[in-house]
């Protein structure tokens, strides 16, 4: 089909990235998938054995690594048609339980990483007068909750970054959009980094964190399979021009619209019904 289209996917050895690499390669795209840890690259290498998937070593936290990785793809292919800014992770914990390093690490990957990749691919896209960037945001960008505050903050920032890039790069024929998924089954829970003091006995938030963990585990047990997300990515890749943003699941749409329609006070009241922390101590 679109046999000469080149896609670059960050964080392609796991979860969304891996599933999208497979789906896009099966549809004839040439997929460059990044991994940062050779010991975890197994699934990506397996994929590469039978499909036009090419693993690239890249740590999105490091500019030199990003430039080198993107440079290699450009040298081989002469272009990148689609960048899927997907690498990311979750820092969990009440704000007071997070250290400065925890917060910085969260922004370093989820926000600065997205900007680094955009910076690395955009000059070539502008020169060719075409290209597409799809940022993986999250529904958490619209609905911040306790424990996931830092993560929400990064995904809110990405939301704004997508909007700015979408405006700024359009004159060059570049299309930028964002996908905002809710819970989906990947390795995101296993890869979650707990804030420094989350497990500390003296944390005043201990009881709250524990009840939130139970709540999150329950939600993720019923999370949708990754196929839903893949469908949305394929749609965003195929749309010319893209929509401003893509939601993935029906529940995500409900949440999004509830947040849109409810005044802050009502929203907080509704959240309070779901979560147990609103009681005084």
């Amino acid at each position: 089909m679109e046999s000469n289209q080149v896609v670059l996917i960050t964080g392609a050895n796991s979860g969304f990235g891996l599933a999208c690499a497979k789906a896009l390669a099966e549809r004839g795209f040439r997929v460059y998938g990044t991994y940062r840890n050779p010991r975890k690259a197994g699934p990506l290498r397996d994929l590469a054995a039978g499909l036009p998937v090419f693993p690239v070593l890249m740590d999105v936290n490091r500019t030199a690594s990003v430039e080198k990785g993107v440079g290699r793809v450009l040298k081989r292919e002469g272009k990148i048609d689609v960048l899927l800014n997907n690498a990311g992770f979750v820092v969990a914990g009440f704000w007071e339980d997070l250290s400065e390093e925890d917060t910085l690490a969260q922004f370093e990957t989820n926000v600065f990483g997205v900007l680094r990749l955009a910076r690395a691919v955009l000059p070539s896209m502008r020169k060719r007068g075409s290209g597409k960037i799809i940022n993986i945001g999250s529904i958490a960008a619209f609905a911040a909750t306790p424990v996931l505050g830092a993560y929400s903050a990064t995904k809110s920032a990405v939301n704004s970054i997508t909007e700015a890039l979408r405006m700024e790069t359009r004159e060059w024929g570049v299309d930028v959009t964002e996908i905002n998924p809710g819970e989906i089954q990947t390795n995101v829970v296993e890869n979650t980094r707990l804030g420094r003091d989350v497990r500390s006995k003296s944390s005043p938030y201990r009881a709250f964190t524990e009840s939130f963990e139970r709540f999150a585990q329950e939600r993720f047990r019923h999370a949708a399979p990754v196929g839903k997300l893949v469908q949305t990515v394929l749609k965003a890749v195929g749309d010319h021009p893209t929509k401003r943003r893509y939601l993935v699941k029906f529940e995500d749409r409900i949440l999004y619209w509830m947040r849109w329609l409810m005044p802050d006070a009502v929203w907080e009241w509704a959240l309070g019904l779901t979560f147990p922390w609103s009681k005084r101590v």
């Binding site: 009440f94 704000w95 007071e96 960008a141 911040a144 909750t145 306790p146 424990v147 996931l148 505050g149 929400s152 903050a153 990064t154 995904k155 809110s156 920032a157 938030y205 709250f208 907080e268 959240l271 309070g272 979560f275 922390w277 609103s278 009681k279 005084r280 101590v281």
Partner: peptide, 15 residues
Amino acid sequence: AVEAITESLRLEARP
């Protein structure tokens, strides 16, 4: 980001 920080911290600090 400040918006999200406010929304989450607001609920975390309320108790």
